[in-house]
Amino acid sequence: MKRLLTVLTIVLAMAEAGYSQNINWRSLREDQPNVVQLNVGYDFGVTSQVSYARTFDLVRPALLGVDFSFPMGSNLLDDFKVRLGGQVEVVEFHGFSATIKISSVFRRYQTELVRIVSFGSDFAVLAGYYTPTWSVGGEFGFDKSITSQIKNSEIMRAYFPGIKDGWYLPTGGHYYFGIQGGKTIGESLDLSLRLGATNAQFNDENAVLPLYLQLGLGMRF
């Protein structure tokens, strides 16, 4: 039963589609369905992020995309995060808008002691006021690291020969909440800012720096 639940959870997480791109629904145009963003900021480390998304209309405005982010350091590719997902505007009333974002998250982490690959999901709700040239809003989300494959290095194995490599479930998660805003520049550029705090799930110990900050420049085409 435990294994079945595990598998179901993982499949659901994989099937989810999500994204952390800052989008102002009111500034989108039908002739500019593609959005590319470059973001820098702090997201469990000083990170750079590049993302691509495509907008489309279902019943409501929606977006699907992928982003890749990595922390700074001498080795840029040993740690990274890839998110695949989308967001949909569920409510719009006189400029006020609510959006749901769902994503699957893949993370990789490596040091001299361990290599971890992790699958997870990210679910968030945004609400705010949007005009064609600027937007402001708040967000609340939950980012869950559902399962992680842990492979310990020879150093760890020498210190504790009984240490077990394998898939561990669950391994972590945190809530995040903050504000975000954006400003449209000209016909196709958007500046955006996200700022907020994180809080580890349940009674887990909090992160060393429980904050996030993202500055972004987007281009629609």
Binding site: M72, G73, T171, G172, H174, D204, E205
Partner: peptide, 13 residues
């Protein structure tokens, strides 16, 4: 960054 990046993968009490 290695020190703080781990915080998003492993949490616990």
């Amino acid at each position: 960054n290695d020190f703080v990046y781990l915080d998003q993968i492993l949490t616990g009490n």
